[in-house]
Amino acid sequence: MANTTDTGVSVTDETTSDITVEAPTAAAPEAAPASTPVDPADLVFDVSDLSVYYGDFRAVRDVNMTVERNQITALIGPSGCGKSTVLRSFNRMNDLIPTARVTGDLIYRGVDLYDPRVDPVEVRRRIGMVFQKPNPFPKSIYDNVAYGPRIAGQKKGLDEVVESSLRKAALWDEVKDRLGDSAIGLSGGQQQRLSIARAIATQPEVLLMDEPCSALDPIATARIEELMAEIKSEYTILIVTHNMQQAARVSDRTAFFSVELDEHNDRRTGLLVEYTDTAKLFSNPDDERTENYITGRFG
């Protein structure tokens, strides 16, 4: 997939240089190519030194990355390296896990998301989430989509919101005659698109998707991928995926996470190894571990 913004080279891109420094096995820091100079106004997320703990256990450490608007960012890496953990910290879903704790800075459009004055509810209304397993509510299709707007206090114009959200999620034609039916009766792929419709009904600015296609067959997966390309102009999307082809197909930039074994306590801590334009990461990665992973030498 051609990257439309793949033009300039920036040596001042902090993100890339951070990663290079941090990767112990990598060669000496070299000039990071293929990175766009970021207009601060386009910056949606600016993450620095983010670590996430579950109790005493540090699940991920030292994540540094920036996300620009209207881009699709893919997070890839072996199982257990903390992709979901990082993604969930982007809209404070980790707050729901009593032991989870976040350190470092996670700046969303100039505001520190973990500032004590920030209300996670407000964050989640702007940064929606689609989960790995489709999780329709045991309600009607209509009520599923209208759920977000309703709890946000919207009473009028729900019909329009439901229709436009279902249209954007490419589900409208399939369900328009049975909006009152239970959402549980939909197929897995339909349920997942319904989850997407439910997420965009609250008019979020960012969509976080955690392996949205892992429970779907190839056809349903293709539909979701198309859908992402279509709605990209309106949303900033972060997607976790185990499917490297998918990452290569849909994303503009890709972050590769890996795990590192701590000999002291035998726990595995995840870390961000490389974060760059998708085209570059898959064709010419800087880090040996990335290379090993994308060529299938490391699982």
Binding site: A41, R69, Y108, R109, V111, D115, R117, E122, R126
Partner: peptide, 14 residues
């Protein structure tokens, strides 16, 4: 949506 400008803290404090 897609407004790339920065927010104020109040916008997120609910």
């Amino acid at each position: 949506r897609s407004s790339g400008t920065t927010l104020s803290l109040d916008a997120l404090s609910g």
